[in-house]
């Protein structure tokens, strides 16, 4: 049984349909990457998994239980936690408070607490009293990751970790991924940077116009197949 599974997942914003029957699975311990062009529906998929967009109950299964209709706060309590697109730190909260609030609905004891997050991202400790939005983009991304980890998630959802960041910073941020997986979280990352996605993921899904157009391990996928799944035309 997969840890997380979507079955024929659809999503709507009012009359606009963003997802058309997405089937996806995440096995325990896996890291899955979702790639796709702007507007392909990657964020809509993560918003559905995290409960921000609510669906029919059995469109999303977590450990065999239907969770598609649960609200976002109950999904965190079950162990699915999100690093949202654009970091979305709380400007009224300091760095440390942003991290602490991630533990608002903490699941028991686990690998992650303030010390563990500071050990992984030491510069956050130096800036812990600064307001969340006073940090550089890369540091904000680290806070957003740490904040999501503070709930000790079984599943970590990351939306565009590298967006708008310099290559050296992206490298620092992705360096945290093995540590996060070792600590027991399975991971779904949404990534525009295909090279980065192929490097870190066990399996990759490519989306276009609200559908999955390609799925496989990085070794299986050819450049041509990816190009076609990404843009809808052959290279």
């Amino acid at each position: 049984m997969a840890l997380v599974e979507t079955r024929g997942l659809t999503a709507h914003y009012g009359d606009f349909q963003a997802l058309f029957g997405v089937d996806l699975a995440l096995e325990e311990g896996e890291c899955v990457a979702i790639i796709g062009a702007n507007g392909a529906g990657k964020s809509s998929l993560l918003r559905s998994l995290s409960g921000v967009l609510r669906q029919k109950p059995d469109m999303i299964m977590f450990e065999g239980q239907p969770i598609g209709a649960l609200e976002a706060d109950d999904i965190v309590a079950l162990g699915i936690s999100m690093v949202p697109e654009g970091r979305r730190l709380f400007p009224s909260l300091s760095v440390e408070e942003n991290l602490r609030i991630g533990a608002y609905r903490r699941r028991g004891t686990g690998a992650w607490d303030l010390d563990a997050v500071y050990a992984m991202f030491p510069m956050l400790k130096e800036r812990r009293t600064a307001p969340g939005n006073a940090l550089s983009g890369g540091q904000q991304q680290m806070v957003a990751i740490g904040r999501a980890l503070m709930s000790n998630p079984r599943v970590l959802l990351c939306d565009e970790l590298s967006l708008g960041l310099a290559p050296v910073i992206i490298r620092d941020i992705y360096a945290a991924l093995p540590r996060i997986r070792e600590a027991g979280s399975s991971v779904i990352i949404v990534e525009q940077d295909i090279g980065q996605a192929l490097k870190v993921a066990d399996r990759v899904y490519c989306m276009m116009e609200g559908k999955v157009t390609l799925e496989g391990t990085p070794a299986e996928l050819t450049r041509e197949a990816i190009h076609k799944a990404y843009f809808g035309v052959a290279a």
């Binding site: 609200e71 706060d73 936690s81 979305r88 009224s92 909260l93 608002y104 904040r147």
Partner: peptide, 16 residues
């Protein structure tokens, strides 16, 4: 304070 800043992100923290 978090809810006042951004209710949707607050709900991602487990806040109702």
């Amino acid at each position: 304070r978090a809810t006042s800043d951004d209710p949707v992100t607050a709900s991602l923290m487990g806040i109702k």
